[in-house]
Each structure stands twice: as structure tokens, then as C-alpha cells.
């Protein structure tokens, strides 16, 4: 593991690749209603991008970027977005997730389009936070030697 983490080629390529992976995941989330993809797949790809960073630069370094607290807020915030959109429809007299009754936009089709995107973003937030925290919890803790390697390469 440490040989791979020390390699300058892998560190540079990971640093270049991660913005594209995250951008692609956002595209997948927003494109979910009109094509293949959706909140779950996009969230998994976003989580995979962060996990790639954690594998090469160390888990402690990745926790500085997205902490356990941020994970908890993202996971529950996504659930609030999803359930909130559904319950909002009930408040306006419809059924759960019946987007059409919410008077947000002039036409019901337009309202549904926007609210489906909100729901997809909620799903994506929850999935990415859960995937990242799963990896953080399941991977073995870093030893003193690993920490030393990261400092040396920096």
C-alpha cells in the first residue's frame, strides 16, 4: 500500500482525475430524469471520487476535506430534502411526492421537473455521505509509518 501511495505518478494522476469524476457525478445526478443515471448512481460515483482521494492521500487527509460531522449533515440533509418534498405535496392537498399540486411554477410539468431534480439531489447527498463514511469506518486505521510517508512526499 505504501509503495503505491508514494508514487508521484499516481498522486498526480489522482489529483488531475478527481475534479472530472466529481463533475461527471454531478452530471449523472442532474441528468437522471431524462436519461440513464440518477441520484443513487451519481452519489456512488461522487463517493468513489472521495474514496480514491482517501486511498492515495490517506484517510486523515480526506477527513480534513469531508469530516464525519459533514457526512452526518449531508446524510440527514438529503433525507430531509427527499421527505420534505414529499410532505410538501401532502401539505398542498396532494399525495406523497405528487409534485403537480405544488404551485411553484406556472405549469405542473415544469414544477414536477424541478422537484424531481431536488429529490435526486437529496438521494445523491445521502448516498455519497453513507458511502464515504462506510469506507472511513471499514478501512484499517492508519499507522504512524503511514503518516510519516504522507509527510515525506508532501
Amino acid at each position: 500500500m505504501s509503495d503505491i501511495q508514494q508514487s508521484i505518478i499516481i498522486r498526480t494522476i489522482v489529483r488531475i482525475m478527481i475534479p472530472f469524476i466529481l463533475l461527471f457525478s454531478l452530471y449523472v445526478i442532474m441528468h437522471g430524469a431524462s436519461g440513464p443515471g440518477g441520484g443513487f448512481q451519481g452519489g456512488v460515483i461522487f463517493g468513489a471520487g472521495i474514496i480514491l482521494y482517501a486511498m492515495i492521500y490517506g484517510i486523515e487527509e480526506a477527513k480534513k476535506k469531508i469530516s464525519d460531522k459533514a457526512n452526518r449533515i449531508l446524510a440527514s440533509g438529503g433525507l430531509v430534502l427527499y421527505a420534505g418534498t414529499g410532505l410538501l405535496a401532502i401539505l398542498f392537498g396532494g399525495m406523497f411526492l405528487e409534485y403537480g399540486v405544488i404551485p411553484l411554477m406556472p405549469t405542473t410539468a415544469y414544477t414536477a421537473k424541478i422537484l424531481i431534480d431536488v429529490v435526486e439531489i437529496g438521494i445523491g447527498m445521502t448516498v455519497l455521505a453513507v458511502m464515504i463514511s462506510l469506507f472511513f469506518d471499514i478501512s484499517p486505521p492508519e499507522t504512524e509509518e503511514d503518516m510519516h510517508i504522507h509527510e515525506e512526499v508532501e
Binding site: P36, F40, V44
Partner: peptide
């Protein structure tokens, strides 16, 4: 079934492998 294929590629080939290897390291 492109949607299912997308999920299979992202979850099956991506995340599951990483989680299994992380568990194996222990």
C-alpha cells in the same frame, strides 16, 4: 437495461470491491 447497467458498474465493480478490500486488510 442501461440504468441497471449503470448501477451495476458503479456499485458492483466500484464501491463493493473497495469495501471488500478494505475489510480484507483487517
Amino acid at each position: 437495461a442501461v440504468d441497471v447497467a449503470f448501477t451495476e458498474a458503479a456499485v458492483g465493480a466500484g464501491i463493493t470491491t473497495v469495501l471488500f478490500i478494505a475489510a480484507l486488510a483487517r
